[in-house]
């Protein structure tokens, strides 16, 4: 029996080692849970090509120039090819991304398969009209300063749910600093409670379910 072994035995008899093992286990699982797990949970996807909001913002009036409301009150969301081709019939600038856009999408007439960061689950009914038109909110409150971005961040998809990471937020613990950090139901509700919007539920005395669900 070596000295070390003796020591081990002594310690284990005295109860020192279990604490050590406990700490090893604890730190291991903390590392897995806080660092490795989020990396595994999300897969990174690149947008079809990059887009510069700043560049486009200079040429149009405001966000609604491209992200507009339809006559029936619905919100068009990410622009369709038809809107872009007004300017992009052929290559305007000298970026590689624009070349991809024109060659791969404009010319064959194919819609760009944008990955939408703020895409909500199918059960959600989100009314842009209620927020922007009736509520007078700006885009930034929910979408953040995306208008000031010069390039698109990678789209991170939750491997289990298939939803964008922007919904849960980038902080794995779900902690948010800005209003636009998360897009979960509680975040919507928080504001609705504060603003006293449709607080007509008999069950919860908060927002009725059919305000934001369909």
């Amino acid at each position: 029996m070596s000295a070390l072994e003796e020591k081990t035995k002594a310690v284990s008899d005295g109860g020192g080692f279990p604490t050590l093992f406990f700490i090893i286990g604890l730190s291991l699982s903390l590392i897995v849970g806080w660092i490795i797990f989020p990396k595994l949970l999300y897969s990174k996807k690149q947008q079809p090509f990059d887009f510069n909001h700043v560049l486009h913002n200079e040429m149009v009036e405001d966000c609604q120039s491209c992200h507009f409301f339809r006559e029936d009150g619905s919100f068009a969301g990410v622009p369709k090819l038809a809107q872009c081709v007004d300017c992009h019939m052929d290559i305007q600038g000298d970026t590689e991304d624009e070349a991809i856009f024109v060659n791969e999408y404009v010319i064959p007439g194919r819609e760009v398969p944008w990955l939408v960061y703020s895409e909500q689950p199918d059960c959600v009914f989100f009314s842009h009209a209620a927020h922007v038109k009736a509520g007078g909110m700006d885009c930034k409150t929910c979408h953040g300063p995306i208008g000031q971005s010069t390039s698109l961040k990678p789209y991170e998809e939750n491997r289990i749910t298939g939803y964008s990471r922007d919904i849960w937020g980038y902080n794995i613990a779900g902690i948010k600093k800005n209003t636009w950090d998360r897009m979960k139901m509680d975040d919507c509700s928080e504001c609705h409670v504060q603003m006293d919007v449709n607080q007509t539920s008999v069950q919860t005395e908060k927002g009725a379910c059919f305000v934001c669900h369909k």
């Binding site: 139901m185 509680d186 509700s189 069950q203 919860t204 005395e205 908060k206």
Partner: peptide, 10 residues
Amino acid sequence: MFPGFFEWIW
């Protein structure tokens, strides 16, 4: 289930 949850009422 906890105070602060959507379903919670005081």
